[in-house]
Amino acid sequence: MTGRSIKVVIADDEPLIRAGIRMILTSDPGIEVVAEAPDGRAAVELARAHQPDVVLLDIQMPVLDGLSALAELRRAVPAARALILTTFGERENVLRALSEGGAGFLLKDSAPGELIGAVRAAAAGDAYLSPGATRHVVDQLASGREAARGEEARRRVAELSERERGVLALLGEGLSNADAGRRLHMSEATVKTYVSRILAKLECDNRVQAALLARDAGL
């Protein structure tokens, strides 16, 4: 995302929430809020019109809820990355969103710096989960999977090289490229190359789906 601002659409039915998010994001000169939507339907239409890099989607919205908007957004603007705005009380919806290709989730009471970091991570092609929640979310989803899905995951992971499986295991722990690089004594750029290769081989849309697959496979 070098050379131009990250374009963002904010979708939330509460005007005060939208205003607060806009104020935080626009404090970063590299981020531009191009539109605000009060519901999921408007979010999809505005994203189609503005072609943003990132869309912040509240789960609970009128007309079209966040999860339905996510599905339509992926069809209408496949290059846009969707970050889900949520509370801990909506955990089940978050799990659905992640498994359906959302770029991650962010709690509404997150610190301003975390919000900016999440948008930048999503724009860079990385998935983002609020700190401390990655293991919880992945564990909860993995625990409900059937044995057959574990077998399928192990079959797919078996196609990876030993080094790729090592990187995938760290994705399952929620580590960033930089942290994985330090753990494996590799540069961040090298880890990023491995991650891209892993996503392609496993046919995963993003790091979150790869992390879920890693946990299903028992890595």
Rank of each mutant, 00 (worst) to 15 (best):
V8C: 07
A11W: 03
A11T: 05
D12C: 09
D12A: 11
D12W: 07
D13I: 03
L16C: 02
L16P: 00
R18Q: 14
I21D: 04
R22T: 06
R22H: 10
R22Q: 09
L25E: 07
L25V: 03
T26Y: 08
S27F: 10
I31S: 06
D39Y: 07
G40P: 07
R41H: 14
A42G: 12
A43M: 10
V44D: 11
V44G: 10
E45T: 06
H50S: 13
H50T: 15
Q51C: 03
L56C: 11
L56Y: 05
L56V: 06
I59F: 02
V63T: 14
D65A: 13
G66S: 05
G66T: 02
L67H: 07
A69F: 09
A69W: 09
L70C: 03
A76W: 10
V77N: 03
A79M: 10
R81S: 02
L85P: 05
T86K: 10
G89Q: 08
R91S: 13
E92K: 11
N93M: 13
L95K: 09
S99N: 15
G102L: 01
A103W: 01
L106W: 01
D109G: 12
D109I: 08
S110T: 10
P112T: 00
P112Q: 04
I116G: 05
G117S: 08
A118Y: 01
A121T: 15
A121K: 08
A122R: 01
G125V: 08
G125E: 15
A127Y: 02
L129E: 00
S130Q: 11
S130T: 11
G132Q: 03
G132H: 03
G132T: 08
A133R: 06
T134L: 02
T134K: 02
H136E: 14
V138A: 05
L141C: 04
A142Q: 03
R145F: 06
A148S: 14
R149S: 12
G150R: 15
A153T: 08
V157S: 05
E159L: 09
S161W: 14
E162I: 15
E162R: 15
R163C: 08
E164W: 11
E164F: 12
G166A: 07
G166V: 01
V167P: 00
L170R: 06
G174L: 01
L175M: 15
N177G: 06
D179N: 08
R183L: 06
M186D: 13
S187G: 14
K192Q: 11
K192T: 11
V195Q: 02
R197E: 04
I198F: 09
K201N: 13
K201W: 10
L202G: 09
N206H: 09
N206A: 07
R207G: 00
V208G: 08
A214T: 04
A214F: 05
A217R: 02
G218E: 08
G218Y: 12
